[in-house]
Write a protein that binds this DNA or RNA. Structure first.
Lengths: 118, 118
DNA sequence: TCCAACTATATGCGCGGCGCATAGACTTTT
DNA sequence: AAAAGTCTATGCGCCGCGCATATAGTTGGA
C-alpha cells in the first residue's frame, strides 16, 4: 500500500484535471494541444487557457504529470511545453475513472441514462 | 427546442449539483438526507453541509429543484426542508449523465477503465 | 504585401464555490 | 445528565476559474 500513500488526498479530481490526465494517457501533449484534444471530444465549453496552464503547473507540482523535453525534428524555436503522465498520475486517473463509473451505474439505476452509450 | 432554451448555460454541472439531482431523482429528500444518501453510495468525501445548503438554494433559484411542502404523519415541529427535482432539473441531469457517459467511453478507450463495473 | 486569424504560453483581476468553523435547537442514546 | 446525532444556516477566507490582456511567432487570404 506504500505506493498508494496520500493518493486519496488528490481525489476526487477536478473535472479539468481528469480531462488532462485522460488526454495525456493518449501520449505526450502540450497545453494548447490538450485543449484542442478535449474540444475534439465534443466537450463544451473546453477549459479556458488560463485554467489549463495553471492546472498543468499545479499537477506537475503534485507529481501527476511531468515536463517532457520534446525537441521535435526541426531545430526551429519550439514554443510548446510538452507533458507526460506519471505512474502516480495513471493510478489517480484510474481511481477517478472507477469513481465516475460507479456514479454512472447509479445514474443508470436512477433512470437518468436510458441506455448505455456504445 | 423552446423548452431547452438556456439549459446549456447550466452545463456542465458541478459535481455536487449532479449528486443532488441524482439523489432527488430517487424521491423527495431534505438536505441532510441527501448528504447521507451520497455517503451511502460510497462517495468520499461527501459534500460539506455548507456546500449542500448553499447548492440547494442556488439550484432552487435556477429552477432545477423546488421546495416540497412535506408535513409527514406527526404534527410535531418538522425541521426538515424537503426538495423535489423539477422537469427542467431532470432534463439537465439527463444531459449531464450523457456527457459523463461519453467521457467514460473515452476513458475506456484510453485504457483507464480495464473493464466496466457491473 | 499586409492584415487577420491562428498557435502558444503566461499572468493579473475579480467573482464565486467550497471546506471549515460556529451557532442554535431539538432528539436519541448511553 | 451528558454525549452524540439530527437539521438548517451563515460568516470567513482560500483558491480555482473565466475573462482580459500581454507577448510573439506562424499561416493564410484579400
Amino acid at each position: 500500500m506504500d505506493r498508494d500513500r496520500g493518493l486519496d488526498r488528490l481525489l476526487p479530481l477536478r473535472p479539468v484535471e481528469f480531462h488532462i490526465l485522460l488526454s495525456l494517457s493518449g501520449g505526450e501533449r502540450h497545453g494548447y494541444g490538450i485543449i484542442q484534444d478535449i474540444e475534439s471530444r465534443g466537450e463544451s465549453p473546453a477549459p479556458d487557457v488560463g485554467t489549463m496552464y495553471r492546472a498543468l503547473a499545479r499537477m506537475a507540482e503534485a507529481g501527476l504529470i511531468e515536463a517532457a523535453e520534446r525537441r521535435p525534428a526541426p531545430e526551429i524555436a519550439e514554443r510548446r511545453n510538452y507533458y507526460r503522465i506519471t505512474a502516480v498520475g495513471t493510478r489517480v486517473a484510474r481511481a477517478e475513472a472507477q469513481r465516475l463509473a460507479s456514479l454512472m451505474k447509479a445514474a443508470r439505476l436512477g433512470g437518468l441514462l436510458t441506455r448505455d452509450l456504445k
